[in-house]
Amino acid sequence: MITAFEVIDPGLLTTVQDIPGRKGLRKIGVPLSGTMDTHCAELANWLVGNDVESPLLEITFGKCEFEFSKEVAIGVTGGVAKIMVGDRLVQQNETVKVAEGERLKIGSVVRGARIYLAVAGELKIKKYCGSYSTYRDAGLGGFKGRELKSGDQIEADITDVQHTEKRVPEKLIPHFSKHQQIRVIVGPEWHWLSKEKQRFILENRFGLSSSSNRMGIRLQSKKALNIAESNFSSAPVVPGIVQLPPDGQPVILMNDAQSVGGYPRILKVADADLWRLGQVWQGNEISFSLIDRRDALELLVYYRKLRESHLT
């Protein structure tokens, strides 16, 4: 059986994304894309019984509305906002049933930055190069290669869906604060910085620029961290790399970032903490905690096992 939901109000930016995105194509310049906050995206899919890597909606800053043509189960996770189904106030991080013809209204995000909406069943979205994810700059994937607009209708196959009410275990629900301490390992050009500048980076908090987006998070500091070295050729980069442009203000590359960069790579965010950066925005602060590669790998394994042990 096929159902559909219509976009009444898409909010600022709503796109179809999946996990892990478009892997294996960075060598030809195609970004990873995919969900910025993989943790909350997985939780939303789990709530409705979908495979955790299934496509879903990534809603930046909330304030959107959808109407459903048939009864369906949904899961809403991520940034904190007021959620209404019809005239009912419903909770995030719980399976929610939406009746035929009812509307889902998501208010403005008050903590965090991105909300994830999963619909039980299989979204009728075509894969492009192995992924359902939207890459807007090139018009690839997702729904017509673009953000959703009012009047768009997305179909879902709910033939084999079995409704089971779930709630995300408390231990897995993130609590968003205005300050995020992000664990990092040293990047290839870390040693180009003086000891004084290395200490400054690790001992101070950085603000976030409003020009941050899915390509990169632009940090702001009162002190410019210019590097004396200028003979730097373009080199491969991946999401999580912290680059240092000539203006001395670091940039953390994210999902839609290029595959080659021309600035020194001073740090790399630990994979276990990358999802946290999907929930930061202007008004938040970021600080860095330096760990070694072994600790970074152990953290990743630990969090994977934690999720697996609770999502049964």
Rank of each mutant, 00 (worst) to 15 (best):
K124S: 12
G34K: 07
V280A: 07
Q17M: 05
G278S: 08
V260A: 04
W46Q: 06
S259K: 04
T15F: 09
L57C: 15
A44Q: 08
D247P: 02
Q92F: 00
I241V: 15
L89P: 06
G187R: 01
P236H: 12
M215A: 06
Q162K: 12
Q153G: 00
Q153P: 01
K124E: 15
I173N: 02
K105Q: 08
S211E: 15
L219F: 10
Y116D: 07
I241Y: 09
L267I: 04
I182E: 03
H310K: 13
D37Q: 06
R205Y: 15
R307K: 15
T14H: 03
S133K: 12
V48H: 08
V242G: 01
K222Y: 07
L274T: 02
L148G: 05
G21F: 08
H39A: 10
A113W: 00
S194L: 01
K149P: 03
R276N: 14
W46A: 07
E155I: 00
E147R: 05
L117V: 14
G62H: 06
R136T: 13
E102W: 09
A44K: 13
E67L: 10
D160M: 02
L297I: 14
G139M: 06
P245K: 12
T35E: 02
P174N: 13
G207T: 12
E285A: 13
L148F: 07
V280R: 02
G187S: 02
R293P: 03
G151Y: 03
T95W: 09
G34Y: 04
I8D: 04
G151M: 09
E147C: 02
V109G: 08
P246G: 14
L297Q: 11
M1G: 14
D37S: 00
C64V: 04
I185S: 01
I125M: 11
L290C: 06
G216H: 09
F5D: 13
G24K: 10
R136D: 03
V90Q: 11
C129P: 00
D295Y: 03
G216R: 01
N255R: 14
T312A: 11
V269L: 11
Q92W: 03
F176C: 07
K144C: 07
L104Q: 12
I2P: 04
R88F: 14
V96L: 08
S211H: 15
